[in-house]
Design a protein around this nucleic acid. Structure first.
Lengths: 218, 218
DNA sequence: GTGTATTATGACCACCTGGTCACACTATGA
DNA sequence: TCATAGTGTGACCAGGTGGTCATAATACAC
């Protein structure tokens, strides 16, 4: 996991944890708000109040810094989902997907910058190793949801006249878009997800899940 | 419609149509493949084989060029949908949405660069007047789908225990993602939409629409 | 206190950007 | 044929970029 192409130098690992966190935090903020290309190493150094040369003492180049930041994101998201979902072990398929969706909302609440970073990677074409990074997160819906879907289909919870991959696609699409709308208000088409109270938000989640359930079951 | 902030200069309108098309074509290609910020006016001029100064004789600045390009996109998409959808006048709600989806696929087939441009505007935060531009296209789902949804809800085609805006959101989300997956294969989670034959593609559309219909009706 | 290894620094580099402008070119009309 | 108006041009500008490197500061061992 931490091979990192040895582009992250030892000097960085030798740093006190607090300073490392500061650096990653500043970097994720810059990358999330500007995107990879427009993000400026100068700006990150300025924000941190350190010399640019120092950053290049920690990381081989801009790309290495970015990849490290994204790496911390993926570990963060995996931990979050695992913690939030696997806790209560409901076997019901739709209860599970509902939990994943709620975990996503929770993640955005806790780490909005990281989610925005993810969106940038998703939709900026000139991000280094973009497909690889996207795949790392998508692995989620593929590897994680895949078997669960199949099982639910065999178990009779999901209709059988539809490709398993299509089920995953539909779930993934709805959940992804829901989260995007939550994180980026202009995407929700007037639903106002991001300003809803916890109660209203839960209702919205229920609405979506209900439609999916009715559409996917039988 | 063509007020354009007078940032498009007369010299451009005076150009022979063929040359204007060439310029727009080169610009959309550059903006679509690089995104607004990284797109280079130099590169566009180079591609066209004309001097950069000429471009600035046609447009006040990079932003004006970009806005003009996007303008041609919006008119293009409106024409396409209108032509494709309004022709056969089925009143059935789900048949209509299916037609809109097929029109989207058709548009991507015909103008892949324009669709990619749209995706960039959608997901790059530092595009000039981004929200305004997105709204122009979203108007589609809002103004166009809105009344249709309400009517379908009153007419009993769509369940009434769900907010009309939520119906629009769900439709919009699914269709948008479907088209994105069709245009950008890495988004489809292994479905392989973009390489499907016409028959298989139609089947995929049917699958999605069937789930939506079953989920939204009653 | 001295010497050595590690880290911090910012001036500097080559390169590219969006945008300008004085000048060259061309077409038109008299 | 000449003058004028409109168009094309590319060297040039200031500003920003990612990246380098000689030097300064520091930490640590003895």
């Amino acid at each position: 996991m931490n091979i990192m192409n040895n582009t992250v130098k030892n000097t960085f690992h030798n740093l006190p944890e607090q300073k490392r966190d500061m650096i990653v935090q500043a970097a994720v903020k810059e990358f999330a708000s500007k995107g990879y290309q427009k993000a400026s190493v100068n700006a990150i150094a300025r924000e941190l109040g350190i010399a640019k040369g120092s950053l290049y003492q920690y990381f081989a180049n801009k790309e290495a810094l970015f990849l490290h930041v994204f790496e911390t994101f993926t570990t963060l998201v995996r931990e979050s989902v695992k913690k939030r979902v696997s806790s209560a072990g409901g076997r019901d398929f739709f209860i599970l997907t509902r939990k994943v969706l709620m975990a996503g909302i929770d993640f955005i609440d806790r780490h909005p910058e990281y989610f925005q970073l993810y969106l940038r990677v998703l939709f900026e074409l000139d991000v280094p190793r973009r497909e690889e990074l996207v795949a790392k997160v998508r692995l989620f819906s593929g590897e994680y949801f895949g078997p669960i879907c199949e099982q639910a289909q065999k178990g009779g919870q999901i209709r059988k006249d539809i490709q398993p991959q299509m089920v995953i696609f539909i779930l993934d699409a709805m959940m992804d878009r829901f989260l995007q709308a939550y994180a980026e208000p202009y995407l929700d088409g007037g639903l106002g997800l991001s300003v809803k109270s916890g109660r209203e938000l839960a209702d919205a989640v229920d609405s979506v899940m209900q439609v999916l359930q009715d559409g996917l079951s039988v």
